[in-house]
Nucleic acid binder design. Sequence first.
DNA 1: AACGCGTGGGC
DNA 2: TGCCCAAGCGT
Length: 306
Amino acid sequence: MTSSETNTTTSMPGTSAPDPAELTAWFDAHARDLPWRAPTTTGWGVLVSETMLQQTPVRRVQPVWEEWMARWPRPSDLAAATQAEVLRAWGKLGYPRRALRLHEAASVIATEHGDVVPAEVDALLALPGVGTYTARAVAAFAYGRRAPVVDTNVRRVVARAVHGAGDAGPPAPKRDLADVEALLPADDARAAKMSAALMELGQTVCTVRSPACEACPISHDCAWQHAGRPAYAGPPKKVQRFAGTDRQVRGRLLDVLRGADGPVTREQLDAVWNDAGQRDQCLDSLLTDGLMEQTQDGRFALPGES
DNA sequence: AACGCGTGGGC
DNA sequence: TGCCCAAGCGT
């Protein structure tokens, strides 16, 4: 197949379609040597990496992923661990509910899928903590399936290269998926590589703040380039506050428990935040979320260690 | 469909 | 500094 056969929209005003051959050739030459990309990595290893990478940068994930793979090489290994062990091993990756959901997913995989991460998107979507992105990422990256992968990086690459916009607007799941679907070659292997290449391009070249267009393999065919790289003109992006939020308080409370050998007293938890009302509310929500437990004598502990 | 959910680093 | 950002998910 020639590139012209897949570039069906290049003649439309204001749009372009990246050439899969150019993108995948660039990926072969420039992809970072990330451990979960090793050919020996199992579906389990990919699922763990994708879960850890949800909203957490590669640099912080890498050492933790290595530890997890050495300690829990199969889903059944993780399933056999306690929640407290899992939460401590998760460390400070953030959003610790991801760790509990991955723990649950490991049990499901062990008992219902023969200890092998499923390759079908629908089966993956049924797992706790696996959403539309992660399901397709595992299908594509672990099993070489043609599954459109839409993350923040891909949305940005598509916004620029295809639509000529400075950045992606608010997520529009149906349209975003259709956009990527239209870019992928028909066969599994090349589609999977194209998905990986789109993500890698967005992470390392087509970045938010300082895109390295001179190093981009598809800049010659980029609608944003051709339009003179106009600034983002969409609705302003929502800013996530952190200082003073429950998220910060919960993080501090949980950090006390991670650092302790066993149950801690309420006084130890009281010390990390001075607003008693907010503190108690966060304590309650952590208990509700199953991220901590209260012992019979009224102390607090990570789940499964008391 | 917004919103809440951790943490750390870059500028 | 404070703000923005980082391979999302569940509700």
